[in-house]
Design a protein around this nucleic acid. Sequence first.
DNA 1: TGAGGTCATAACCATTGGCTTATAGTCCGC
DNA 2: GCGGACTATAAGCCAATGGTTATGACCTCA
Lengths: 325, 325
Amino acid sequence: MTFAQLRSFATVARMGSVSEAATALGVSEPAVSSAVSALRKDLGDELFVRVGGGIRLTAGGERLAAAAAEIVGLEDRLRREVREARGERGLLRLVVSPTVAEYVSAPLLDAFTRRQPTLEVAQEVAAGDDFAPMLLDRRADVALGPSPRPAAGVDAIPFLRFKLVVVAGPRHRLAAARDIGLDALRGERWLVGPGESELARLFAERSLPVPETGTFATEAGAQGAAAAGEGVMLAIAHTVLGPLRRGSLVRLDVRGTPRDAFWYVATLGRERRSPVAAALRRFVATPEATQAIVARPGGVPAGRFRPPVYVTIWSALDVSARQAS
Amino acid sequence: MTFAQLRSFATVARMGSVSEAATALGVSEPAVSSAVSALRKDLGDELFVRVGGGIRLTAGGERLAAAAAEIVGLEDRLRREVREARGERGLLRLVVSPTVAEYVSAPLLDAFTRRQPTLEVAQEVAAGDDFAPMLLDRRADVALGPSPRPAAGVDAIPFLRFKLVVVAGPRHRLAAARDIGLDALRGERWLVGPGESELARLFAERSLPVPETGTFATEAGAQGAAAAGEGVMLAIAHTVLGPLRRGSLVRLDVRGTPRDAFWYVATLGRERRSPVAAALRRFVATPEATQAIVARPGGVPAGRFRPPVYVTIWSALDVSARQAS
DNA sequence: TGAGGTCATAACCATTGGCTTATAGTCCGC
DNA sequence: GCGGACTATAAGCCAATGGTTATGACCTCA
């Protein structure tokens, strides 16, 4: 499999025709045909079949078309970036968990880049399990998220303690109750956001089955649903201070809460981390950083950050899987 | 540039040594060295320099290491996917705007896959300008988002009308005012979420300068800040019904609002779109779909959807750019 | 049935890739 | 200044790539 072959196939998929692709690429038709043939042998898939006048992609061909276009695009980007890296400012590549992306990284980077004004930052959002490989492969310089699983060569320390509290809408039946046992909440609908949830751990620790949940695209969305009385939620305390003060959410006095948890910063080991990575690693533990994160959960003035554009990392999300219900 | 060369360089970057990389790859040291040499000539960058006992990556080398690991990973995924595509169920690849990801796609796909139970769905989040190229390159089958710029071969139609209203916290000074002119709100702090904002258009239509804004990682986050009295917001009406009913947000009676807007569905032209793409395209316009979207903005029962894992699409976000302020 | 598409394959050739072994250059520490 | 550890380069080999032209097989449509 070569870049040229993938480029050929991507063009075929795009044009819907081998000969048109050949014209577009400025080569003879057999050149494209043989590139496809090589991919066929390599991948063990027909990729497309002739049907009537034109062609139709097989299932494998559909996937290859997507991946080929992506890889070819990456190659272009790579060349451009390496070219532009000459004499450029520092680049800090961050990988964060969804929750950190929602509440932590924007104010944190806002504060950090105030001190390091000549710095570019690229941010990805990924699951915590991907942090170590991404650091080791140098696809990221710094990871911010929940406790990572230990990995050789990766050096993680907690940098921010936060508290988890159970919240619900103000009309919740247990709003005024004291010292609620967790099993009294087993029948509730628990609302969760995107990231990896402490909720499962909380129940597992007490040997209780994980309760029924409703999933939201964002933590803030889950909070909104909780406020509307749709269920209860294990929320990050400082992100619900406003709603609690206003009374749109109330804290339930559940035994075992507030529960402490930590966000971690991870980099490569001392010798291998880049200077910017080391600087951010030191910075996140400072009171200034903590202050910035806790003071304005989520928002920063415009003009310093564009919001990130997201791309899902897995391509085969099985939405048809159903729970017994 | 070949995959083997990139794999070699990625290993060098990872190991921090040419000879260790050679050992890891099971080849001789000159094999790796010459692969790097080929990349050097190809890309016109030193990639790394010898320093003391080991090596240090140049700026270009850092970027290459990141991109190389990414490409190599993609190649592996590609082979796996094509292999597994044999006899597999249909795959629907969706690309959506950030706002659609937050409020539309989860309930929509929940309803859609109820009818099409044997379907896999992959979702990416990207900016509207990327929709057309992604459809044309067959990196996505269906795009859902705000009005796309017209492109040859891409067929877009509006599928859902929604209303935009100006909301603020309940103690806002204009909470009870009637028929507010937009220029009376120019001094406000406007809160915006991630996506492309109607806000700029709204002001531009009246030839007013775009006001000062605060940016949030999610629409729901911006809503929370508005409820806390941090500013005003141009919100999607059906997503703030709950807060309005509870009184945690109030609608400001601004002239020109409620303002109508549309979400669009885009696919390739009739002949080239896949059957699933055509089915979803038809489905989104049905009352059932509309109902699902409006009824539960944001959330779905767990077990049907895992929340997506996000990766930023741009690698050179310049966070140090500052607006004159 | 035959003409005109379209894609696949064959035969051929020049170039590149990727590996080996051998050797030369460079830097560090003693 | 010299051994030792490292990377870079040279020379040689074989396989694979990427291109050509020529030809065959298949489908559609007049």
